[in-house]
């Protein structure tokens, strides 16, 4: 009896395991094309989680489905089922197995997190007040190669301090650790590039440093990920990853350009509303910041999503 039960369970596991592994492999295709080192790590973790999750879902839902299909009461059967009230061994086992599983998942997640080397915002926080109070001791800027990211309602602006270039399109050299120094002028915004799998809130009143490494040339979308008010959804920008040569060429070209208004779809939309060309009723909104003057506005076209 016992042996038969165990054999049946083993047979079920033998069927479910390849299905789960196959679904776990499919999980890679549910994500955007990975364009950073971090993305490769996150996708591995997601595939692992999907494999485990599929196995558990199939096991539990399959058991329920079997019961519902084959263990129904006959039409006039008013009787009761077997009065089984529990099984201590079984209950201990199904407490222990999830515990072991989550320790495994947490350990693996920790390993991935460690490899990603994500900076928590508190690790390298520079309070604005401190920077102003101690100008003498802070003679050398902390990270001269950082690109400054300025978020305001509802436009992203990027400043390359060494080249003195401003832009509303983020350009990054491929295979180089991108270092961002992010600040917000008004509310909390979120820096999120799905193709890079990285996200970090930009909290007003402090500088948040953030790092990742792009590994695939192309154009991607930067989206505001922390709800920031009326034109939140329109606060997007293009991110261009290009070869180091192309990147430096772009910097030099941009530095030579005369400042002009950058891209700012929310302000354009707001103008339409103010001039009463929009007939839909709406409530009063915070006025969007006008387009910043930048060397390089960038392309208003959406990138074509990867294959």
């Amino acid at each position: 009896m016992k042996v038969r039960v165990i054999l049946r369970l083993l047979l079920l596991a033998a069927i479910m395991t390849p299905i789960s592994i196959w679904v776990g492999q499919q999980a890679y295709h549910w994500m955007p094309e990975p364009a950073s080192e971090e993305a490769l790590l996150v996708d591995n973790l997601f595939s692992f989680l999907t494999t485990l999750g599929t196995f558990i879902f199939l096991g539990v839902a399959g058991t329920l489905l079997y019961s519902v299909l084959f263990q129904r009461a006959a039409k006039y059967d008013e009787g009761d089922g077997p009065p089984i009230e529990g099984n201590l061994t079984l209950e201990i086992v199904w407490t222990a197995i999830p515990f072991v599983l989550v320790v495994w998942i947490a350990g693996y997640s920790y390993k991935i997190y460690d490899q990603m080397g994500i900076l928590g915002p508190m690790e390298h926080v520079h309070m604005m007040g401190e920077a102003i109070a101690a100008p003498l001791t802070a003679a050398a800027p902390a990270q001269p190669e950082s690109i400054e990211v300025h978020a305001r309602q509802w436009v992203w602006e990027f400043y390359y301090p060494q080249a003195g270039v401003t832009s509303t399109e983020l350009h990054l050299p491929n295979y180089t650790r991108a270092k961002l120094a992010m600040t917000s002028e008004d509310v909390i915004h979120g820096f999120y590039v799905p193709a890079f799998r990285v996200k970090q809130d930009v909290i007003p009143g402090r500088q948040v440093n953030f790092e990742f490494t792009p590994i695939r040339e192309g154009t991607y979308r930067l989206r505001d990920s922390e709800y920031s008010g009326t034109y939140f959804a329109a606060m997007q920008a293009n991110v261009v990853v290009e070869s180091a040569d192309a990147y430096h060429q772009w910097l030099n070209q941009a530095a030579a350009q005369v400042p002009q208004p950058g891209l700012n779809p929310s302000y354009v939309e707001y103008q339409v509303r103010v001039e009463n060309r929009d007939s839909r009723p709406g409530w009063k909104t915070v006025t969007p910041a006008p387009a910043p003057l930048v060397n390089f506005p960038g392309s208003p076209d959406l990138p074509i999503p990867g294959p």
């Binding site: 971090e38 790590l41 999750g53 991935i112 979120g190 990285v198 996200k199």
Partner: peptide, 22 residues
């Protein structure tokens, strides 16, 4: 059951950083 499985996924910090607020 489905929500519980996606819940465990969300608890995994590196994955959550991607899908948080999505």
């Amino acid at each position: 059951l489905f929500a519980g499985i996606t819940g465990i996924m969300l608890a995994a910090v590196p994955f959550d950083i991607h899908v948080n607020n999505t």
